[in-house]
Simulated scan of single mutants.
Amino acid sequence: MTSSNAFRCGTVAIVGRPNVGKSTLLNHILGLKLSITSRKAQTTRHRLLGIHTTEDTQFLFVDTPGFQQKHINALNRNLNRTVTQVLSEVDVVLFVIEPMHLGDADRKVLQLLPKNQPVFLVVNKADLMGDKGNLLPLIQDFDLEFPFTGIIPVSAKKNLYLDELLAAVREHLPEQPAIYGEDELTDRNERFLAAEMLREKIFRLLGDEVPYSVAVEIEKFEQEGNLRRIHAAIIVDKDSQKPMLIGKGGEKLKRISTEARQDMEKLFGGKIWLETWVKVKSGWADDERALKSLGY
Rank of each mutant, 00 (worst) to 15 (best):
Q85A: 15
M129S: 13
L245R: 02
L193I: 15
R47V: 03
A215T: 06
I235V: 13
N116H: 11
P18A: 13
A13P: 11
T54E: 15
K279R: 14
G250M: 10
I139C: 14
E98M: 07
F221Q: 06
H71S: 08
L162C: 01
T2D: 11
T44N: 05
F59Q: 04
D106P: 12
V216D: 10
M1L: 08
L79N: 11
A195T: 06
E288H: 13
F67E: 04
N134D: 13
D104Q: 12
R45H: 10
K254G: 03
L162Q: 00
D239G: 01
T186Y: 01
E196I: 14
A215H: 07
R191C: 14
E175T: 05
E217G: 09
R81W: 07
K271I: 09
K108Y: 08
K292L: 13
L121E: 04
L26F: 12
A167Y: 02
V96Y: 13
D141K: 11
P114L: 02
N78T: 13
N80W: 11
G66C: 05
T2H: 09
I272P: 03
P243S: 06
P118Q: 03
V123T: 06
Y161Q: 13
Q262D: 06
I152E: 08
P211R: 10
S240F: 00
M244T: 10
N80A: 12
A105E: 15
I72N: 03
N5H: 11
G270Q: 04
S23M: 05
S88K: 14
G16C: 05
L102C: 10
V169T: 02
T258R: 14
E209L: 07
K70W: 03
N189A: 12
Y180H: 07
S3V: 07
V96K: 04
S257F: 06
A195L: 12
F95K: 05
M244D: 01
V93P: 09
G270S: 03
L75V: 01
R17W: 07
K292A: 15
L162N: 00
D143N: 14
F221L: 09
K22V: 04
E98D: 15
G295D: 09
G249I: 12
E190P: 09
F7N: 08
D239A: 03
Q176K: 05
G16R: 00
K292Q: 09
E217A: 14
V122T: 04
N19W: 05
K279D: 05
L87I: 03
F142L: 15
A260C: 09
R77E: 10
A74E: 07
P174H: 02
S35C: 15
G283I: 00
I72V: 08
R170K: 13
S240E: 07
N124F: 03
I202Q: 11
G16F: 06
G50H: 06
M264Q: 01
L227F: 01
T57N: 02
E259A: 10
R228S: 08
L144A: 14
K158W: 01
L144E: 14
I272A: 01
D163S: 04
K254S: 12
E259D: 08
G225A: 03
P65N: 06
V92Y: 03
L79F: 08
V122H: 02
T82G: 14
V83S: 09
F142W: 15
A156R: 01
I218C: 11
P177G: 07
L136N: 07
N134T: 08
V278N: 04
V122F: 02
D239R: 02
T149C: 04
D91M: 06
L165C: 00
